[in-house]
């Protein structure tokens, strides 16, 4: 029983990070109806930013998380300005293929500059620390990452649902032309949403080098899992992405522990198929 709860906790902790990565994608998908294929690569770049700040300037990931968030915000804005802007109003496949090209570019650029080696940041404030609570072990880096992810997802949700900017975003997502007639600058909304979506994944990537090795391929799997979480949660629903992220984390941990490590992703993708076959628009979709 204790083992089961331990596995469950590990799953929930990784699920919270998945939720944050998915929340960024969810914003972009919900507002612009675009699948950003380079989302996983944003995560990889954020991890490199945090790693190099830690390695060269001795700044702990806990602090450089801000820097990587801002950096990916800028990359998101640039992506919108240079690529996505030209694909708005065209079939969804165009943006998907363009971001696939971008993902290929970013991944191989990092491969070229930083070599494919696994890089581990040692001696961080949180690294390798654990604390025990009644027989259960909580790894501190994962716990910090999970809590940070939860807080950021909560803030994003509050911004979207309560502030004036959030209402403008919702209006743009519902009907772009009507929103424009109401005096909303939808172009500005799109830029900011792509930036904020990037910043989410930037924050997640910024804290991750405390417990995960950095290499150019690290983002691909996270990107795929983020797609699955967003689609499972339902079109543009942040609570849905959070729930789906936690579910994916738990299923992954349970299948990995009780069946075999190779089966953890099979279980995750099978879960997605099962959910959408029952509810074709996701858990919170309509």
């Amino acid at each position: 029983m204790e083992t089961f709860i331990q596995v469950l906790i590990d799953g929930l902790l990784s699920g919270m990070v998945y939720a944050l990565v998915a929340a960024g994608l969810c914003l972009i998908w919900g507002v612009m109806d675009i699948i950003n294929f380079a989302h996983g690569e944003y995560l990889m770049i954020a991890m490199y930013v945090s790693y190099w700040l830690g390695f060269l300037a001795n700044i702990d990931p806990v602090i450089s998380v801000v820097a990587s968030g801002v950096f990916i915000f800028i990359i998101g804005v640039l992506t919108y300005k240079l690529i996505i802007r030209f694909t708005i109003g065209r079939p969804g496949l165009v943006a998907l293929l363009a971001t696939f090209g971008l993902a290929m570019f970013l991944k191989n650029f990092c491969m070229n500059r930083f070599t494919p080696n696994f890089r581990i940041l040692s001696g961080t404030w949180l690294g390798d620390k654990t604390f025990q609570l009644g027989g259960l072990i909580f790894p501190v880096p994962q716990l910090a990452a999970g809590l940070l992810a939860l807080i950021v997802v909560g803030i994003i949700y509050l911004i979207i649902s309560t502030t004036k900017f959030g209402w403008a975003v919702q209006a743009t997502a519902m009907d772009k032309e009507a929103a424009e007639l109401m005096g909303i600058n939808t172009e500005k909304i799109y830029v900011l949403i792509f930036g904020i979506g990037g910043a989410c994944v930037g924050i997640a990537g910024g804290i991750m080098p405390t417990y995960l090795a950095v290499h150019p391929e690290v983002g691909s799997m996270f990107g795929l899992i983020a797609f699955v979480c967003v689609a499972m949660g339902g079109f543009g629903s942040i609570p849905g992405a959070l729930l789906a992220g936690l579910l994916v984390g738990v299923v992954e941990a349970l299948a990995g522990f009780y069946i075999a490590p190779v089966f953890k992703y099979i279980a995750v993708f099978a879960l997605y198929l099962a959910v959408v076959f029952l509810r074709p628009k996701g858990i919170f979709g309509w």
């Binding site: 690529i83 030209f86 165009v94 363009a98 090209g101 971008l102 970013l106 491969m111 070229n112 070599t115």
Partner: peptide, 22 residues
């Protein structure tokens, strides 16, 4: 040249072709 220069250029070309000639 090592380290995927070909794929960097290929990725860029995909972006340009897709965006410019959908």
């Amino acid at each position: 040249l090592g380290g995927g220069v070909d794929l960097i250029i290929f990725g860029l070309l995909i972006i340009i072709i897709v965006v410019k000639q959908p």
